[in-house]
Amino acid sequence: NNDALSPAIRRLLAEHNLDASAIKGTGVGGRLTREDVEKHLAKA
């Protein structure tokens, strides 16, 4: 659900052409954090 993404996370996802649903969020309520996105990028 993109409504739960902060603007910074949306921008980071867009810059790397990532789909938020492909990344498991570890923030409050399962929200994506910058660390989640960076860890996903490091794996790729």
Rank of each mutant, 00 (worst) to 15 (best):
N1G: 13
N1P: 13
N2A: 14
N2L: 14
N2S: 13
N2H: 13
D3P: 11
D3I: 11
A4M: 13
A4P: 11
A4T: 12
S6A: 08
S6D: 15
P7R: 09
P7E: 15
P7A: 14
P7N: 11
A8K: 06
A8R: 08
R10M: 12
R10H: 10
R11M: 11
R11W: 15
R11Y: 13
L12S: 03
L12M: 08
L12H: 05
L13E: 00
L13N: 00
L13K: 00
A14V: 07
A14C: 05
A14L: 12
E15V: 11
E15T: 10
H16R: 04
N17D: 09
N17T: 04
L18V: 09
L18Q: 03
D19C: 12
D19E: 10
D19H: 10
A20N: 03
S21P: 03
S21I: 07
S21Q: 11
S21C: 05
A22Y: 07
A22T: 11
I23M: 07
K24N: 08
G25R: 05
G25H: 06
G25S: 05
T26N: 03
T26V: 03
G27F: 02
G27E: 02
V28M: 12
V28P: 15
G29D: 12
G29H: 07
G30P: 01
R31H: 08
R31K: 11
L32F: 03
L32I: 15
T33W: 01
T33A: 02
T33C: 03
R34K: 13
R34H: 09
R34C: 04
R34W: 15
E35I: 08
E35H: 09
D36V: 00
D36K: 00
V37G: 01
V37E: 00
E38H: 09
E38S: 06
E38G: 05
K39N: 14
K39W: 11
K39V: 08
H40C: 04
L41A: 05
L41M: 06
A42K: 12
A42N: 10
A42F: 08
A42R: 11
K43D: 13
K43F: 12
K43L: 15
K43R: 11
K43Y: 11
A44C: 06
